[in-house]
Design a protein around this nucleic acid. Structure first.
Lengths: 136, 136, 136, 136
DNA sequence: GTGGTCTAGACCACG
DNA sequence: GTGGTCTAGACCACT
């Protein structure tokens, strides 16, 4: 299976963060499923024409969030216990992101109603993507 | 009028950019109107507990975009060139943040219901904080 | 007799060393006595869901220390050379782990009471697991 | 203030982990207090005669645990909110270590009683160290 | 061949 | 001068 990753070295966002973000997106939308193997950091580095360490840094971060598991000599795999985090901790983990969103919305004077509507839209978008993939 | 600014030093985004972004947002949304006076960079630095130079740098950038006018010894004011952001463009500005939030939520399998509930809570928290400041 | 082994692939310590360490411990504490038969490396690999080569490597190291004897086609047995660890030495072996635990607890300001309570809970959890296995 | 850090390149434990462990110990025992500044990763690297990136990796890990805060151009400081983690999360963060300890103890046939006693001893040792430092 | 660690540089943005 | 990122290598241990 081909990963559709692409990085833009001069995008403001550091390359390794772009990778983290895109791989997270792939996991969240079901493009990558628990147990799937990721390319080795060297291989992916070759493909993206960046330094291996840069890919590894991205993988390290993903492993720190328990989203992937890197095993010496075995390879790197999408973790299966991403959803096994205790429910109380789940919300805590995204609370920081929610907070940032609300601050930004407050500054722009965006009413709560619009925010929720937009949220629902994005949510169903990604949900549909997930369902499509699983029904194939 | 009290500015509703909120910076996070360890946010990846440099502090002065956070300031630029938030002040731009405040102007665009009408929270700051042409002619309004901004606090001096020293004063704002004190309030936000950051280095004065950081605020100065943000102000310089805003002046370079003609959004504010800094007159020696007179103070800093929102320029009359400042324009409002159209409501439709507002949502586009935070769509990226919403998207990332939804991806995280999807990975953690957080139901939309919980997400919205949390969002409402954070929203009212910030609103109360805002009212408190204005009643001082 | 069921061996009470437990390996964690992403533990820093390589899997085969975890095996060596745990089997050594089991021998030293008397859980495994001289003459006891160990499962074949294939069998143990299946049970622990790791590569057979990994178990083989661990057995090789244990044989090099004369703690076990692997006879072709006959099976693997605990050597009669195997010696018990004196009770006082037992505690020294885990003192380092205890020390690290206490440091973490100190940083998080966790009271000794909670720590002990949690310890008791984990302890009884493992004991139950052990009884279950033996009653099978 | 002089940090008493020393690393042993061929100790089994990787250098950057030795650093993490020692700095954690210093924080836990009160040798480093919230707000204290750590030497820059370059400076510390010079002192320890290792590569700057190695120190940085250690600092990165400590920052990931919110024990320190690294700010571009400002320096690195011991975080003040190390103890502000929600109580429910505190135990979760050390549960893994407790689990490892109990498994090791179980293999060595160490009775719960001895384990607790040893734990109490270590706990009071570090507590006394902390009190001594604060009473100076 | 895989990840794990370490080195020795470089350039940039930040304060 | 500080941290943030990236590079291009190296050697080792593990499977």
């Amino acid at each position: 299976m081909k990963l559709f990753l692409n990085v833009n070295p001069s995008n403001g966002l550091p390359v390794y963060r772009q990778l983290v973000q895109q791989i997270k997106g792939a996991i969240g939308s079901g493009k990558l499923k628990p147990g799937d193997q990721l390319p080795s950091h060297r291989e992916l580095a070759l493909e993206l024409v960046i330094a291996p360490m840069t890919v590894k840094k991205a993988y390290d971060l993903l492993q720190a969030e328990s989203l992937i598991i890197m095993g010496s000599g075995k390879g790197t795999f999408v973790s299966s216990n991403a959803q096994m985090i205790s429910p109380s901790n789940k919300l805590i983990r995204i609370q920081e992101k929610i907070n940032q969103l609300v601050i930004e919305a407050s500054i722009l004077n965006i009413p709560l109603k619009d925010l929720i509507e937009q949220l629902k839209e994005e949510y169903s978008k990604i949900e549909n993507e997930y369902k499509e993939r699983n029904s194939k």
